[in-house]
Every structure is written in C-alpha cells, then in structure tokens.
C-alpha cells in the first residue's frame, strides 16, 4: 500500500489554480523529491497536501482518504509537515517544541523516551534543550523542526525546502542525516527542494513540477540526459 496517493490535485489562492491535476504516489520507505523552479508550485503542493489551502482532487494517506480533512486532522492522521521557513515556535523552548510535536499522541509514556531518542540523533538540540527556539541558528532550527515532525511518529514526513537560508555544509549534513534516518528507520519522506543536486543525491524517486503540473516522474532518481539539461542546466 502506498503511503501517499495523490490524484487530480488542483489548488491555488484565488481564481486561477497554481497547481493542476497533480498525480503522484510515495511508497513506504521512499525518499521522494519534488523539484522545480521558483514559483512552479512546490510549496503550494505541500500546503495543499497538508490541507492549509483549499484543493480539489483526492489525497490518500496509507489508504485513508484525507481529501476533505482540515490541517490538524491530517497531522493527527500521520502527515507531518515541516513548513518552509521551519515554523518553529520561536518563543517556546526546544523542549516545548519537541513536546508539541507529540501533542496529539495519546501514548504519553513513550513521549519522553522518544525525546531522548531524537536528542541522540540531533545532539545539538540536547545542548539547547531549555533554550528559546528563536535564539538558535537557522540550521539548528531546521533540525528542531524536523525532530518536531518526527516526534509525532508520522507515516509520512513532508519537508518544504529544508536548505532554504542554510549554509552549504549544513545542508549537506542535513541531507545525509535524512538519508540515514530513511535507511535505519524506513521513514517515508516527501521533500520539496530547489537545490536539485543535493536532493537527487538522496532521492529514490523524483518529480518535476513546471507551471503547476507534474512533468515527469523518475524512479530511482535516474534522470535522462534531456531532462537533466532542461531542468538542472547541466
């Protein structure tokens, strides 16, 4: 069963749709990346998937139809969305941010254990545990946002432009971390990225968005030379 099955998804902010008739699927354990130029509709796609904007079409999460659901209902169904710009609770502490990731989980006993687990994978968070999240650097906040997403034990983790505003070395580390998470825990990921090279280095599947439509789907991230030149410029 696919983790995410999207059919005929259209969404926008006004009269004209920004994305139209998007079809895509993510299988368990895959790292799927959505590539495209600025303004192609990547973030709109993410927002439509988490229900932040009105959309038409069908979205299924592990077989559950979440098409008409509100954002918080989708989050509770297992869709964790790390938004563009990270969306950390800046005035709350790292600890509180992590606890908030688990806020809709009923199994309170395991939450503390999970916090420990993620702290060991993101040690920098441990050193800043009681610090206000807004005082951390961009890279640290990105890790916090991802850890927060993971705290909910999601079926699928959506990440919107994780490299935005981060230094190259940090983004490289970050992507390696994501790859490792996927390898060790089987975490399913749907990434939206402008940095195509970096994204493709860890992707098992890639989609290209152009003018709001999915142009191409590549399994195993093996891209034809034609597409490479068209979209990546080399």
């Amino acid at each position: 069963m696919t983790i995410l099955a999207v059919s005929n998804l259209s969404a926008g902010y006004g009269y004209a749709p920004v994305i139209s008739d998007v079809n895509l699927a993510v299988n368990p354990g895959e790292i799927a990346v959505v590539l495209g130029a600025n303004g192609a509709g990547k973030t709109t796609l993410m927002r439509a998937l988490s229900g932040m904007i009105v959309s038409t079409g069908q979205v299924e999460l592990s077989g559950i139809d979440i098409s008409g659901h509100s954002t918080h209902a989708r989050a509770r169904a297992g869709l964790a969305h790390v938004p563009q710009g990270r969306g950390t609770f800046a005035n709350l502490t790292v600890a509180e941010n992590l606890k908030l990731g688990a806020i809709s989980r009923p199994d309170t006993a395991d939450i503390a254990r999970d916090i420990e687990k993620w702290l060991s994978i993101f040690p920098v968070l441990g050193s800043r545990f009681n610090q206000r999240a807004g005082t951390m650097s961009g890279g640290e906040q990105q890790m916090l946002a991802i850890a927060r997403g993971l705290m909910s034990n999601p079926r699928l983790l959506l990440i919107d432009e994780p490299s935005l505003g981060l230094a190259p070395k940090i983004t490289a580390d970050l992507f390696q971390l994501l790859a490792k998470l996927n390898a060790t825990t089987g975490l399913s990921l749907l990434l939206v990225e402008q940095n195509a090279q970096l994204a493709l280095s860890i992707a098992t599947k890639s989609f290209f968005i152009e003018n709001g439509r999915i142009r191409n789907v590549e399994e195993n991230a093996a891209i034809s030379d034609q597409l490479k030149r068209a979209y990546l410029g080399y």
């Binding site: 988490s50 932040m52 509100s70 954002t71 918080h72 989050a75 509770r76 964790a80 969305h81 938004p83 969306g87 950390t88 609770f89 800046a90 005035n91 709350l92 509180e96 606890k99 908030l100 990731g101 806020i103 809709s104 309170t108 927060r148 909910s152």
Partner: peptide
Amino acid sequence: TRIGLAIRAAAENPESSLLVGIDI
C-alpha cells in the same frame, strides 16, 4: 499541562500549531 502548552502554541504560532495537530 499539555493543554496549556497547546494553548500557548496556538497563541504563538497558529499555523505551526495546526501542523502539529492542534485544533486552534
């Protein structure tokens, strides 16, 4: 309390609160 944390989160950042499953 958990609900207190959720209330503070909703006041602080409604969008992110929705994303973690809080009914703001």
